[in-house]
């Protein structure tokens, strides 16, 4: 294969990576404000620990040098546990959501069969499933997976269906005219043409997976960043709660970058 030209997309991502000084002003001000209100005793540390303390706890959580909290050095263990849960739940949602969504978008019988039910279930907020999930699956692993898969399924399903149903009929005609049968029309026209929409659904789904792994882990598992958060709250380590939030945000951001890169690998266009 030759070098494929990827002009436009590379430009777009280059733009989003370019450093813009204006964007850094507000975070600096917020941190300064945070520093001021915490360092002059206006707000006690048990409510809002000062930024330097949070920074040290965050670093300690990763490397374990100072042992300032009981969680020192355990970041990788918890992060790995949460990541695996996210990946499993997300994979389940994608495996169900993508094919069902594509079929819904293309086949009227499937759409009429599935769509009303999905849209009805979709109106129940994801958090609202928590008590029922705990009754069905007990506290912990299975409940977490169920919540993630359920929450991530809807955007994946809906975007896949949307993408498949809005494939230009001209592409389909061109494909038929060039000798594509029903099956190859699906794999070589409908799937790649729906890909941008499908990819957007997957990214939304992955984002929700991180939100719901925290929800699942708040309910009495011992490992995972959500569990650390809940545990730290009960032990009064507000700094650890904040640090967990920061690492979840970082992991969510990182996983989105990786997913985007993978998707671009599948379809460079």
């Amino acid at each position: 294969m030759g070098n494929k030209q990827r002009k436009s997309r590379v430009n777009v991502s280059a733009n989003s990576l370019r450093f813009d000084a204006l964007g850094i002003v507000l975070p600096c001000l917020l941190i300064a404000f945070w520093y001021i209100i915490t360092s002059y005793g206006r707000i006690p540390a048990y409510l809002l620990p000062p930024p330097l303390q949070v920074g040290q706890v965050a670093l300690d959580f990763a490397v374990g040098t100072w042992q300032v909290t009981p969680y020192a050095g355990t970041l990788w263990d918890h992060a790995l546990t949460s990541t695996i849960r996210v990946l499993r739940g997300f994979a389940l949602a994608a495996v169900l959501g993508v094919p069902l969504g594509l079929l819904t978008g293309r086949i009227s019988v499937v759409r009429r069969f599935l769509d009303p039910t999905v849209n009805m279930l979709r109106t129940v907020p994801g958090i609202g499933w928590l008590p029922l999930a705990m009754v069905w699956f007990g506290v912990g692993e299975k409940t977490t997976l169920f919540l993630i898969a359920l929450a991530a399924f809807f955007p994946i399903y809906i975007n896949s269906a949307q993408g498949a149903s809005s494939v230009s009929p001209l592409y389909l005609r061109a494909g038929q005219m060039l000798g594509a049968n029903r099956f190859s029309l699906f794999t070589t026209i409908i799937m790649p043409a729906s890909f941008p929409s499908l990819a957007a659904g997957l990214r939304l789904g992955l984002g929700l997976s991180w939100a719901f792994v925290v929800l699942g882990e708040l309910t009495g598992v011992t490992h995972g960043l959500g569990a650390v958060m809940m545990d730290a709250r009960m032990l009064g380590h507000v700094d650890m709660v904040m640090v967990s939030m920061i690492y979840i945000a970082l992991l969510g951001w990182l996983s989105d970058r990786i997913l985007t890169a993978l998707l671009r690998l599948i379809q460079p266009f």
Partner: peptide, 8 residues
């Protein structure tokens, strides 16, 4: 319009 497949 050419109706080329933009992903190819």
């Amino acid at each position: 319009s050419a109706v080329l497949f933009p992903w190819l």
